[in-house]
């Protein structure tokens, strides 16, 4: 074998990545070739120098890692509830809007907000009468009837933005 053919495979030879036959052929050549032998020495020395390369972590490495993992956990918990939070943020105003807008009605040409205050029951006569004696002259009581189970609302003049 020529040196040029050998040199291509010297790296693999040093790394022990060649099959037995090829390894033996190169070994035989190296034993009789000073130039290739020196090249193998260089490669081996380079390999050994790097094998001895040392590095050491700081003593607080694991403490810092622990802190960062806790942050990751905190974030992942937040992300888990993010869709729920987003749903609430979107749904609550929607529900409020629907509930609020349905309770606004037109009375005597002006807008009145109807605030639901409850149903009358058979034993609520006293309560019912209390509701009818509202002090605020702007508020009126609107009930579907005085019988038990009637829905009662307070009419409040609606002022947008209040």
């Amino acid at each position: 074998m020529k040196c040029e053919d050998i040199k291509i495979a010297l790296s693999e030879f040093v790394d022990n990545e060649l099959n037995f036959n090829k390894h033996s052929a190169i070994k035989e050549h190296i034993d009789g070739c000073e130039q290739c032998s020196r090249e193998v020495d260089n490669l081996s020395t380079l390999k050994n120098q790097l094998a001895r390369f040392e590095s050491s972590l700081s003593s607080d490495f694991e403490f810092k890692l622990h802190q960062r993992i806790n942050k990751v956990n905190h974030k992942s918990r937040f992300h888990k509830f993010l869709p729920l939070a987003a749903s609430i943020i979107l749904i609550v105003p929607l529900v409020h809007y629907l509930a609020f807008m349905t309770a606004v009605t037109m009375l005597d040409g002006s807008i009145h907000e109807l605030k639901y205050i409850g149903k009358t029951t058979s034993s609520d006569d006293e309560q019912f009468h209390k509701w009818t004696q509202l002090d605020d002259s702007n508020k009126k009581l609107a009930c579907s009837g005085s019988a038990a189970g009637s829905d009662c609302f307070v009419e409040i003049p609606y002022v947008p933005g209040v």
């Binding site: 050491s56 810092k64 890692l65």
Partner: peptide, 27 residues
């Protein structure tokens, strides 16, 4: 130590960066 050594070598022996990146590997 092995992962740190690998990264430390790649980032040309900048220890602070190497430790930070090693933590990222384990995260």
């Amino acid at each position: 130590e092995r992962i740190f050594g690998f990264i430390y070598f790649q980032v040309k022996q900048h220890k602070h960066d190497a430790e930070d990146l090693t933590q990222e590997v384990f995260i």
